[in-house]
Design a protein around this nucleic acid. Structure first.
Lengths: 277, 277
DNA sequence: CGCGCTGTGGAATAAACGTTCTATTGGTCT
DNA sequence: AGACCAATAGAACGTTTATTCCACAGCGCG
């Protein structure tokens, strides 16, 4: 039996179990492994059900708990349950809370809606983003002589952010559309040694599409962020990323796109400095 | 006893309880109220502990469950437990998962970090945003003849987004700093009937501060988004909003600011169209 | 080889569990 | 006022629970 006090929060307990798991006796190690892999089962199950699931005797569970300093199995179980008590609300729950708050101000509700849309978009992209493709795109952009940033209208905040960040990080780039109507001329300088980073969502700004298509025709590689496989950017892109932003009252979030844009800028800059210096 | 099948997901169950709560007998309504207010207790507690907490007999809990179509209390309890099983991970858990994923690509990790920072920023602002102040700012902006948008460097994506959205929504606005170095002149046209919307974070772009201060000196009301009470924008603002963005590898998120900016644009446009006709 | 120790399985135990049953209440019709 | 019925409280039920206890297996050491 351990002399030290057992941890009372799940985080520490998890760590403790992971540490001790190796030099624990066979059956206790078995329990440790099961506990780390199935915390919800420990929280909800009974000693008997957990014992069966982890191929162990109920008494082993008690010994396991005691070896960690707990008084018994139930004592340890409480910690697993506390984790679930302290959880954040799920997406659906929050939305219904939102609707229920009728007394709040209209503007506050609106903010909650936009915040919700932003969080949801980010969560979605997190699940869908292809790590290999991302890595490849970073490689391609890092090799580019100049990165041309094409993003107008709703996508302009993104392209302008990238331009600012690239500039700060010492990555040569050209922001298109910032200064009047010279966009077409600016992009016409792009060569196959450069890369076009195009950002466009429904309804695709015609100028963005046109510029990207013509550059692609001249052999300039294109990396794009867009919202579906039917985007006119997809067929002319060497690599393209699908970002589906949630909307609130018809206004689409930009948060997921922005997070992806930040990733590009920082990852590209880091890869460059790594290869150069 | 109900003849219909009881709901198997928490969402539907919650709704069902809320609906029936009113025309339920006294003691059962008492349980319904407790269940809606303390779902976690129902999930983890025993019939005895819940009965005591809601000042009811254990048998009442069984009758309550049966009146909803469940076979018994345990049957109903399962639904409350399922909710906790399906929960999303908490912030701390996600961060540690992030660190644990050493095998993943560097760029993917980076994206996860930026996504995390964005989500965290939004969650923070949600807690801190003052609904009354927000409502007041929307009122002020809605009355403005022209809204001058002042945001340079890192804040430029925000001000340019607002300009685009205001334009779409038919709200007269002037984006500062978009076209070369004429910023000072543009703002000099602002009158006390207009409003300056200034956005600036550490290190505060000197031009943003200068323009805002001079406009304030001429009696133009200022609404600003900034990151602390020590911001040079705070003392010259009629209303200012504190947004503290989380960062990853030194790069601050913009997501919370963006969500707030979207709220301003849509809320102001809506208020205008409501007052005009 | 035998001693002692740790780890383990499984029976034993008492407490706590959810459920059922029944007497009683409280209120609404006739 | 009396009869009826739904709703309730609380005791009683059998079951399941976590825990304890004990016998035995494995193993290193003297």
């Amino acid at each position: 039996m351990s002399l030290t006090d057992p941890p009372r929060d799940f985080q520490s307990l998890q760590q403790l179990i992971a540490e001790r798991a190796q030099d624990l006796p066979k059956r206790l190690a078995q329990v440790a492994g099961y506990a780390l892999g199935n915390p919800d089962e420990i929280a909800f199950g009974t000693a008997a059900s957990i014992a069966e699931a982890s191929s162990v005797q109920p008494s082993t569970l008690v010994r396991f708990a005691q070896s960690l300093g707990f008084q018994g199995f139930s004592d340890l179980q409480d910690v697993f349950r506390s984790r679930l008590r302290e959880r954040v609300l799920s997406y659906d729950e929050r939305l219904s809370h939102l609707r229920a708050d009728d007394k709040a101000h209209k503007a506050s509700l609106m903010f909650a809606g936009f915040a919700e849309a932003a969080e949801h978009s980010i969560r979605e992209l997190r699940l869908r983003l292809d790590g290999d493709k991302l890595e490849e795109a970073v490689k391609l952009l890092a090799k580019a002589e100049t990165i041309y940033l094409v993003g107008l209208r709703r996508s302009f905040p993104i392209s302008s952010y990238m331009s600012y960040a690239f500039g700060k990080l010492g990555v040569k780039n050209q922001l298109i559309g910032a200064t009047g109507g010279l966009a077409a001329e600016d992009v016409s300088f792009a060569t196959p040694q450069d890369v076009i980073m195009a950002i466009s969502f429904t309804p695709y700004a015609s100028e963005t599409v046109k510029l990207t298509q013509s550059a692609h025709g001249r052999g300039v590689p294109v990396v794009s962020i867009t919202d579906s496989a039917f985007s006119p950017l997809a067929p002319v892109s060497k690599l393209w990323f699908e970002v589906t932003e949630s909307h609130f009252e018809g206004f689409r979030s930009l948060s997921a796109t922005l997070a992806l844009a930040m990733t590009f800028t920082v990852a590209v800059a880091e890869r460059r400095s790594a290869s150069k210096g």
